[in-house]
Amino acid sequence: MGILKYLIPVAVIAAGVGWVVTAPGSVDAARYDGVTGNAEAGETVFTAAGCASCHHAPQSEDKLVLAGGQPFASDFGTFYAPNISPSDAGIGGWTVADLAGALTQGVSPDGQHYYPAFPYTSYAKMEPQDVADLHAYMQTLPASDVASKPHDVGFPFNIRRSLGGWKLLFFSDDYVMEASDEAGGARGRYLVETLAHCAECHTPRNPLGGLDKAMWMGGAPNPSGQGTIPRLTPDKLTWSAEDIAYYLESGFTPEYDSVGGHMAEVVDNFSKLSAEDRLAVAQYIKALPALGQ
């Protein structure tokens, strides 16, 4: 009994500290005050970030109606991409700072943590100008009134506040690779590590769902359960930079096999970017360090 006398206050303090440190953060709105969005530039950001690939409606031919609804299975449950079209059911009323909070902090305008199925762990490094441009572009897209489908996630992962703890452990806006000219420069790194969020699928995750950065781009099981996402490091991927750039443009491997699965959507996006951007990504991939087993 005696020990409880000490344990209870400790537990209360721990819970209090836990409550504080898991609180959703917010962006510095002033950072976005002087930034004016350009919709045309935003289209490139939108394409490079692959927003439509996950947020268009399942089986929809029109990939610019961002009604959401595609399921994403994981070890923690099934997540459904929400409606992010410019309507009341989506992000119609959002300010640039609201969008920045979502993309760079993983926090909704009403102060809730998002699940990291939404790759804000990559988007965290987005330039304010790109966020503003993206915001301007997304407001020009068709509106959909389809309500977002709730995620199908079990206890304890359904307690959003626990994501504050997850973020303490795994959320960082540091880059993994050095930016060098041989590695596609700052642009290549920004495309791979931030906008195109390649590592979200190509890097394995630990049991809590955080990226295992020691195995950067080391390949991973497909979260859908079928097959694997390939390793991109030079111990496995032996294509030349030109081969990789051509694959991102056409979907053809050097053997003229063709891209499949979700990567087909990724190639769709890359094919709309500039040849310089594709080559920068390819150079980044070629500069990855080899991994062991």
Binding site: G227, F252, V259, G261, D268, S271
Partner: peptide
């Protein structure tokens, strides 16, 4: 023209071909 053929491959694989 190759780009268009690649587009046709991709459009179908996107939906109907499982990843390796």
């Amino acid at each position: 023209a190759l780009g268009k053929i690649g587009g046709a491959c991709k459009a179908c694989h996107d939906t109907y071909r499982a990843p390796e």
